[in-house]
Amino acid sequence: MVKLRRTMMYVTGNNPANIMEAHLYGSDSIMFDLEDSVSLKEKDSARFLVYNALKTMDYGNVETVVRINGLDTQFGRDDLEAMVRAQPDIIRLPKTETKQDIIDVDNMIGEIEKQIGLEVGSTKIMAAVESPLGVMNAYEIATASKRLVAIAIGAEDFVTNMKTTRSPEGIELLAARSNLLMAARAAGIYALDTVYTNIKDDDGFMDEVKLIKQLGFDGKSVIHPRQIGMVHKIYTPTEKEIRNAVRVVGAIKEAESKGSGVIALDGKMIDGPVVDRAYRVLELAKASGVYKEEEQND
């Protein structure tokens, strides 16, 4: 099964109401934030709250992500100690700039895993790139650890560093988004886009989602439940895409049943990326409720 990460909803780590209900809005992932949305005075309380939530709550199929503070701070190191033990699905590092950042955290997590008798490497991470240096090093970052399942772009700091601001067209982010995507694809991991902060501007939001989908991102970070449905709608495959995917999967099954190593459709050979895309289209279609497994048997 292909894991979908169309939407990752940000949830303030110090707000119990939000932590309790975040998974009910239908996003693929929820990200509990210990970093920017938590004031310096409340770092300890957010850490206790998210830790106890992960230990207690059943978030079902929703992927849980925790954004910790930077490891250049004591907060970040304390967060890591707590979160490797609380075991969300993914730990997200903010402001990654070099592969060494990833290697360091990989080692720190490994130490903790050993202490608690967890298999070394079982904790997964996601890196957020939020600076020009991080973007320039994107491929090295993306390949620095086997733990890494995704890289994400954080635009607010990035555009500030670039001496510009965000525009509706997103021209200022084009190079960074493209570079990050290529790094992710080359490394075989997911690429996630940044947040859109004006929750009242639906049109602007949808334009941006269409853009990043077209670029090739796996999904977008969202800051409000109302943004989730809009992303999912845009990521819903067309009927034509679904029909194609069904045919590709049919060809795979046929090849398997014949014991053939070569998959062919309409007399043409089908290779890896097309197969992957077909599975992904069907997952997207299933998640969007426009396709059910049984239809394959038609």
């Binding site: 119990p16 300890d44 309380s45 709250l49 830790y51 106890n52 939530a53 230990k55 207690t56 709550m57």
Partner: peptide, 17 residues
């Protein structure tokens, strides 16, 4: 109207402070 894990987390935070 806090549920158990929230009560526990807040009690621990207040205590450690």
């Amino acid at each position: 109207g806090a549920i158990d894990f929230v009560i526990k987390a807040r009690a621990l935070t207040a205590l450690y402070r």
